[in-house]
């Protein structure tokens, strides 16, 4: 499937700041699941910094914007050819071993309720267990935008019983860790579902390490594994670590952000 993406992040700073430094994970890695046909990231007024591929196989690019800065517009446009690999991440080169993805962060820390949820399922093997955990998390946290925020932890989202893809993903990572399965946070895009059910075009899901298969994606928000509708940008231990755009604004200010994402099937 060919997917066209147009993603704009518009940051505003009031009052203007001295300098903005960003670190982007905005370039899809080439692997069996996806091939980049066209890709372009623009930051008007910005200076591109060093680029490199990190240990998790993601392309990282630094940007600096010299002040005074009152706004930064990051625009990502591209076309990706995707292939359905039944959720398995194939041909992705990385250095970090699976065991390194067993550690928790404040966002993915396990509390008693998460532990109960993780232990509530039984399965004959790792793959079945990961599916069962994915379904259990989706059932325990209803999809509802607006009730959680960027810093909500997995434990808090489960207590609320509601959340968005970020909360589902944090909770699924926590549950997988409790069952001794390496797990991580993936950020990317998802093409809109046909029937108009709720979705977020800028999306997030979890990858769980399944012995014998490798990294397998699990989308608890949609109770499925990533297929050809998904474009993977990068991964990390939690949402902050995997953020497609991380930034620091130097100076006292109030930052606001507007994001628009269009993800659609491209013409052949």
């Amino acid at each position: 499937m060919r997917i066209r993406i147009d993603h704009t992040s518009h940051y505003r700073y009031d009052p203007p700041v001295r300098r903005v430094v960003q670190s982007h994970r905005l370039i899809p890695a080439e692997c069996a699941n996806q091939r980049v046909e066209q890709w372009q990231v623009t930051v008007p007024g910005g200076t591109a910094g060093g680029a490199f591929t990190d240990g998790a196989g993601d392309q990282v690019q630094g940007w600096t914007i010299a002040g005074p800065v009152s706004e930064v517009v990051v625009r990502v446009q591209g076309v990706v050819e995707t292939t359905d690999c039944a959720g398995v991440l194939r041909g992705h080169r990385e250095r970090v071993p699976p065991v390194a993805w067993l550690g928790a962060t404040p966002a993915t820390a396990v509390d008693a309720a998460l532990a109960d949820l993780a232990r509530s399922v039984a399965a004959p093997d790792g793959l079945a267990l990961a599916h069962a955990l994915c379904n259990a998390v989706g059932a325990a946290i209803a999809y509802r935008p607006g009730v959680t925020h960027a810093h909500t932890t997995a434990a808090e989202a489960l207590a609320l019983g509601e959340g968005v893809c970020q909360d589902h993903t944090h909770a699924l990572i926590a549950c997988a860790h409790l069952r001794e399965m390496p797990a991580r946070y993936v950020s990317g895009y998802m093409q809109a579902t046909e029937d108009g059910s709720p979705h977020e075009a800028a999306h997030a899901w979890a990858e769980i390490w399944v012995e014998g298969l490798g990294w397998v994606g699990f989308d608890a928000s949609n109770s499925c594994c990533p297929d050809e509708r998904y474009v993977r940008l990068g991964c990390g231990v939690d949402a902050r670590d995997a953020a497609p755009i991380r930034g620091v604004a130097l100076g006292q200010t109030v930052e606001s952000l507007d994001v628009s994402v269009a993800v659609e099937a491209a013409q052949q």
Partner: peptide
């Protein structure tokens, strides 16, 4: 603060990206 503790006032934002890209 961009790579590690975001509340650090001692460091240099973006240092790790420059370091890892050989600058």
């Amino acid at each position: 603060p961009l790579c590690f503790r975001p509340d650090s006032m001692l460091g240099i934002a973006g240092l790790m990206d420059v370091y890892r890209s050989g600058g």
